[in-house]
Amino acid sequence: MKKRGMGRYIFLALIAPGVLFITVFMLIPLFWVILSTFQEGGSFSLNNYISLLDSVYFRQVFGRSVRLSLLSTGLCALLGFPAAYYISRYSRHKGMMMALAIFPMFTSPVIRSFSWMVILGRKGIVNQALVGLGLFARPQSLLYNEFSMTVGFVQLFLPQMILSLLGVMDAIPTDLTEAAGSLGATRLVAFLRIVFPLSVSGLVTGAVLVFTGCMTAYTTPQLLGATDTQVLSTMVYQYAMSLRDWAQASAVAMVMIVVTLAVSTLFNRLSRRINPLAA
């Protein structure tokens, strides 16, 4: 009996520092910030939020953030699935393939933005090809707009999606797709009916990571976007750093948190439809 009691105390003692740290440095400040957004001049007020929702500018920025994040998540899923499937099933040099896949995560934002300038710029490679092949008369505006931002997001977060999917796909036994094939399923059908449903939990994890990443990314919209393609994160920066309006900045941040949580929950619900066994 004594031993059991001791063990419990030791356990609590070990986790106490961690819990304390998170409480003091994350939970309490977060709670404080949440409270502060509901105050104006010391008393309870919804003005911070009302003024946001009133602003046409904010509504556009909000819509854009959500729209681009969802779009990027969708693109990452579309591109990530075949890539992860290939690496999981067919690749001889799995380690090297994985390294290539996650490589973008290690480049700095400034270098990435410059590289995109070289590729998508007015005089960039893509435009040179488009005009050179006679597809367009003049160079197209491929940069500093929602297109380039989406491209930047996808490049940045595709590795997350691939890694999430890879983890789940590796756990799917190969004989399942073989069984499907022996029963008459083409590779595509086997993928859609067997691999895809069983990968859904990885897809959800990846989607949540990508969506959250896109919603909160700052440097990519900053360097690849324009003033008329602002997103919530650049808006928070403007309020906080340029105007030092902490109340408004916090309100925008709260909106970001709520949206991210809502969308993540939605993804989880959807996944359960596709695969009843999904966690």
């Binding site: 046409v56 602002q230 403007q238 105007l243």
Partner: peptide, 15 residues
Amino acid sequence: LPAWTERWNETFGVK
């Protein structure tokens, strides 16, 4: 500046 910033956003930030 705050007022100008808001109008600037509305001019250049809104499509």
